[in-house]
Amino acid sequence: MKLTEIKELLDAEVITGANRLEDDFQEVCSADLMSDVLAFATPGTILVTGLTNVQSVITAHVAEVGAIIYIRGKHPEEDAIKLAKQKNLPLLASPLSMFEACGRLYAKGLKSGSNTPK
């Protein structure tokens, strides 16, 4: 699903990465704990999170997450935005809850971007 469609689906605002709205995503991972992202996220996944500090962007960069969607109307902090611009990482902000955001993405056929142990 293209990022531009995801933006519409989640009523989201694009904070950085407007040049990457045509990028296609197949997987979604949701977490507020960055160690869980580092442990379980698959490369290229979208990350849905409520953690807005710079660590969210560093974690995404290190784990090769393809885009971050901040939920619950939260906006990333300034240093997070600055780093995301440097790394050309798309950041979006949605007013939806984590459940609602993930539910809409799941209903559209996106798959789990999380290799959790069974």
Partner: peptide
């Protein structure tokens, strides 16, 4: 530390993995 998104007790096992 938890507010930073860390401290879930996954760090060292994750390094080893």
């Amino acid at each position: 530390m938890r507010e930073m998104g860390f401290g879930a007790g996954m760090g060292l096992p994750n390094i080893k993995r």
